[in-house]
Design a protein around this nucleic acid. Structure first.
Lengths: 168, 168
DNA sequence: CAGAACGTTCAATAAAAACTGAACGACCTG
DNA sequence: CAGGTCGTTCAGTTTTTATTGAACGTTCTG
C-alpha cells in the first residue's frame, strides 16, 4: 500500500467487484494481491485493508473457489499465504460459462414440461435456452484463446508453487 | 399462465435473474412475456405475477434499459404494453461488454497514477486492464455473430417465429 | 368538467446480504 | 504441557437492496 494511487486502485477493484455482483472485500483483496505480486497472509490483508480476519478468510476462500487466488503454504510456516493468479479473471469467465450452461439446462427442462397446447411458447423458451448454451460454448472458446496461465507470478525469488502444496 | 409448468418456468427465470445479480421480479417479467409472446400491460403483469404495480413499472423499465423489453404503445389505448424482444439476451451481452470496457478504463486510469517506484505493480495492473479490454472486444464480436434481431414479435404477420437457429 | 384508469415516484418496510467479534480446534514452539 | 498463533465457523449486527402502498400528475371517457 503506502501510496494513495494504489489505495485508490484497490478501492476501484472493490467497487468493481461489487458492481459485478461480488463483494467489495473480495475485490479489494484481489487488487491488493495484484499490487503486491507476492503471496500475502490473511493477517497482512487485515492490516492493509482494515478488515476483520473473518472477512479476509471468507473472501479469500471465495476467490480461491473462483480460481482467482491461489493458496501457497510456505515451508517452515504454518501460515497460509495467498497470491493472485496471473490471469485472475480467466476462471471468472469459466464460471460464467458454467452458469450459462446450467441456466440453459434449467430453462430447457422447464420448457420440456410445457403442455402440448403451448407449443409456440415452448419454442420461444427453447430458443432462450439455446442462447445460454451457445453463449456458454462461445465463452469457453474465448477462454481457450486466452494466453496460458503462466506460473511466473512473484517475480523475485522462487517460491516454488507447483510442488509445495502442503496443507494439513 | 394457467399451467403449473409455465409457472415453474417463470419462477426459474426469477431465480436465474437473481443469481445473475438482477432482481427476481425482473426475471419473472421477462419469463412471463416470453411465454405470452405478445405485448402485455403492467396491470396484466401484476395479476399474473402477484406483484405490485410499482414493482412491475420499475422492473419493466429496468429491463427496457437493458434492451430486453420493448414498450409498444398500442393505437387507441393509452396503456403501455410490453413485449420481450426476440433475442432478449443479446443486449445483456452488450451491457456486459460495455461494463468490461468501463472496468478496463477504470483500472487503466488507476494504473497510470502509480508512482514510478511501483512500475512492476503497475504493469500487473495494466495486464489486468487489458484483460477487460480484450474481453469486451471479444464479446462484441460474439454479439455480431448472433442472429439479427427480428422485429417480428407481437403479430401474426410472420410465421418463422423466433426460429432463427444459431450458426455456431 | 367529473371520474376513472394509467404510469411513475417516493417514503417506508421487508428481506437479504455483507461484515464483524468472539469462540473454537488444530498446530507449533519452548 | 502451557502459551501463542493460525484459519475457520457461527451468531449477531450493520448495511444494502428489493418490494410495496400510497400519493401524484396525466390522459382518456362520458
Amino acid at each position: 500500500m503506502s501510496d494513495v494511487a494504489i489505495e485508490k486502485f484497490i478501492e476501484t477493484m472493490g467497487s468493481l467487484a461489487q458492481s459485478e455482483g461480488g463483494t467489495r472485500i473480495a475485490g479489494q483483496i484481489l487488487g491488493y494481491l495484484v499490487v503486491e505480486g507476492e503471496p500475502r497472509t490473511l493477517t497482512q490483508m487485515t492490516e492493509a485493508l482494515s478488515i476483520s480476519k473473518a472477512s479476509a478468510s471468507t473472501n479469500a476462500r471465495l476467490l480461491e473457489n473462483r480460481g482467482q487466488l491461489r493458496r501457497v503454504s510456505q515451508l517452515g510456516s504454518r501460515q497460509d499465504a495467498w497470491e493472485a493468479v496471473s490471469n485472475p479473471n480467466r476462471d471468472v469467465l469459466a464460471t460464467v460459462a458454467t452458469r450459462f450452461r446450467k441456466s440453459g439446462e434449467a430453462i430447457g427442462e422447464a420448457a420440456a414440461a410445457f403442455p402440448p397446447d403451448r407449443a409456440e411458447a415452448r419454442s420461444r423458451v427453447v430458443h432462450l435456452a439455446d442462447f445460454y448454451f451457445n453463449s456458454a460454448e462461445f465463452i469457453e472458446e474465448w477462454i481457450s484463446n486466452l494466453p496460458d496461465r503462466q506460473e511466473e507470478n512473484a517475480s523475485d525469488l522462487s517460491t516454488d508453487h507447483g510442488a509445495a502444496k502442503f496443507t494439513g
